[in-house]
Simulated scan of single mutants.
Amino acid sequence: MPLTVITTQGVFTPENEKKLVPQLSALMLKVHGLTGNKFMTPVVIGHLNTVSPELIFSGGVPVISTFIEWKVPSFGFGTQQILNEYVEEATNIAVELSNGKLLKKNVFVNVVHAVDGSWGINGKAYTNIELGEAIQTNDAY
């Protein structure tokens, strides 16, 4: 399940840039009760993009900000409780790793639900049902 993080350059130290995606990924698995799942763990993949401070805007004005976006199947982040927990904890992780450079109000989290059958993993297109079965069997893909 791909994670994209976009942030203003310089918000995180190089060391903390390397921590951000792994911590957000671990949190995603945790809130879904999938920590250590042999199928899910390696398919939770993400990247961090840094953008010049002059090129991220809020209300048309440059702002130091971080965007956290997941693309998941329709059952991912399937309850408001899971969303609430993830958004709160992910925001806290980003703010903490910024060492005071990032304000909570400038961390944005969203989830995009992908089209059923669009999960290409190891050369196989998985449907939501097949993903659910693979997660339940807890076998490496």
Rank of each mutant, 00 (worst) to 15 (best):
L3I: 13
T4H: 08
V5G: 09
T8R: 09
G10K: 11
V11K: 07
F12D: 02
P14G: 00
N16A: 11
L20Q: 13
V21I: 14
P22D: 00
P22G: 06
M28W: 07
K30V: 05
V31N: 00
H32Q: 03
T35G: 07
T35C: 11
G36V: 00
K38M: 11
F39V: 00
T41L: 10
T41Y: 09
P42A: 03
V44E: 00
V44C: 07
V44N: 00
S52E: 08
L55G: 15
I56Y: 09
S58D: 15
G59P: 12
G60V: 07
G60Q: 05
V61W: 01
V63C: 00
V63F: 02
I64E: 14
E69F: 03
W70M: 04
V72I: 10
F75A: 05
F77T: 10
F77S: 03
Q81L: 14
N92D: 12
V95T: 13
L97F: 02
S98E: 09
S98D: 06
N99A: 12
L102F: 15
K104A: 15
K105L: 09
N106M: 03
D116K: 07
D116L: 08
D116S: 08
S118L: 08
W119E: 04
I121D: 08
N122Q: 13
N122D: 12
G123Y: 02
Y126P: 06
T127N: 09
I129L: 08
E130T: 05
L131W: 01
G132M: 02
A134V: 06
D139R: 15
A140I: 02
Y141M: 08
